[in-house]
Each structure stands twice: as structure tokens, then as C-alpha cells.
Simulated scan of single mutants.
Amino acid sequence: MARAQRVQRRGRRLRAVALIGIDGSGKTTQAHQLAAALNAAGVPANYLRNAGGRRWFGRLARRLGRADAQRLLGRNGLLLAESVLRWLAIARTLLRSVLTRRVAVMDRYAYCQYASIRAHGGRRWETFARLVYRVFPPPGLTLLLTVDPAEAYRRIESRGTDHETMEYLIAADAAYRSLPEYPTFVVVDANGTPDQVAADIGAQVARWLPESRRAPAVPVPATAPVST
């Protein structure tokens, strides 16, 4: 079940929702699902992905005979590339939201970069990241999808498109919980089925909507994107 935010922002128009969490927590599936549910309820919304390019670099590394992205670019090189690419993605996302006046349902946000930096042991990079990311306003609602690292590992292996070590998943889980922004997150238990998780998310988002626009989360379609 979701843990309620300490401060409810009632009366404000919902402009952006960010779904964050470790790889395998279901961010992509749930972000797509939430955008679809909002549109079905008459609330214009766009799914927007703020990726940092780590998966792409990982695929490139394997093609070049390297084990992973960090072996290809080095830890510092990877963190720099990831920070820059995610910054550009978030800037594009927020600009598009302003221009279209649609709710931005964001798959990842700046907090994902801070957690990635901590999980990779590059804490000195966090100061740089926070300096350049501070131009972005916090989302109206940030949903932290939490999942047991062992379950996340199982999901990642079952989709067969990428790989993460258990050590990294455990470190990333701890990193999210250690962020100073953690108390402002709505924590959603993502260990359940996609429908169960969508219901919890829908209940949290409904707090922001007028009663006439509140609708139950629609079931995850069979062709839903793989969880990330």
C-alpha cells in the first residue's frame, strides 16, 4: 500500500507526476498505465521518459566486448554522460508539458540521478548534479515504487533485455531511501501484480483530481511495456 505524503497539496492543479525507483520496480509499465488512466478520466496527460542512457550504453558496451556501461566509460564517465542526458530529457519533458498544458507523467526524474550516483559510490558527483538540476521544479507528486531487490532481479532477468547485479539493486534501493527528499515521496509497494500497484497509484493521484474526473485505474493491457 502507498504511504501518504506528509503534505497534501490540495487545491493545486496537478502538472507533473514522477515515478521513480530501482530497475525492475515497474516504472515504465505504471507510467504508461497512469497516463492512459488520466486520459480516460478526461485529464489530458502524456507519458514522458527521462532516461539517462545507461541501458543504451550497456548494449553498446556488450557489442564492443565490454561487460557493461561502466567498463566502457568508466564510473566517472558514465555518471557524467548519464547526468547530462537525463538533464536534457527532463528539460524537454517539462517544456513539452508547459507547451501542451497536459499532465506530465514522468518515467524517472532528477531523484533517479541522485540515487544512481549514490549507488555507484560517486557521491562527489551529486553536488554537481544537484547544482545543474536545481533549475527543475519538484513534481507535484513523486511516487517511489519500492520492490524487493530479489524480485526486481527476477523481473530484469525474465525480460532478457538487460542485466543488473543484485549488489547494485540493493545499493540503489538503499540510495533512494537515503535521499533528503525521501520524506516527500509517496512510497508505493510495487511487489504486487501490475493491477494492484496501479490501483494504489490511482488512489494517490485521485487526491489531486476533482471528483468528476476521478476514475479507477484501468487494467494493464496484455501488451504493456516491460517493467523498469
Rank of each mutant, 00 (worst) to 15 (best):
M1D: 12
A2T: 14
A2R: 12
R3N: 13
G11E: 13
G11N: 15
R12S: 14
R15L: 08
L19G: 04
I20G: 01
G24W: 00
K27F: 00
T28C: 05
T29K: 02
A31E: 03
Q33Y: 03
Q33M: 10
A36R: 15
A36E: 15
A37N: 08
G42M: 10
G42I: 09
G42H: 10
A45F: 05
R49T: 14
N50W: 01
A51W: 14
G52I: 08
G53Y: 09
R55E: 15
R55Q: 15
R55T: 15
W56V: 14
W56C: 13
R59G: 13
R62A: 14
R62T: 15
G65D: 13
R66D: 09
Q70F: 09
Q70G: 14
L73T: 11
G74Y: 14
R75V: 13
N76T: 14
S83P: 04
V84Q: 01
R86T: 11
W87E: 09
W87R: 08
L88Q: 10
A91Y: 02
R96D: 09
V103M: 05
A104Y: 00
V105M: 07
V105W: 03
D107G: 05
R108G: 00
Y111I: 08
S116V: 11
I117D: 05
I117H: 08
R118T: 08
R124P: 06
R124S: 11
F128P: 01
R130Y: 11
V132L: 10
R134S: 13
F136N: 00
F136H: 05
P138R: 12
P139Y: 00
G140N: 14
L144F: 14
L145I: 07
L145G: 02
L145C: 13
T146M: 08
Y153C: 03
R154L: 08
R154D: 07
R155P: 00
I156G: 00
G160E: 10
T161A: 14
H163I: 01
H163E: 04
T165F: 05
M166H: 03
E167T: 10
Y168P: 01
Y168S: 06
L169V: 04
D173I: 00
D173A: 12
A174M: 02
A174H: 06
L179G: 05
P180H: 07
P180M: 03
Y182D: 04
V187H: 03
V187W: 03
V188Q: 03
A190L: 02
N191K: 05
G192N: 04
T193M: 10
P194F: 08
A198D: 02
A199E: 10
V205M: 05
R207H: 10
R207C: 07
W208Q: 05
W208A: 08
P210D: 12
E211G: 03
E211D: 10
R213M: 13
P219A: 11
V220Y: 03
T223C: 02
T223G: 06
P225F: 07
P225T: 06
V226R: 11
S227D: 02
S227I: 01
T228G: 01
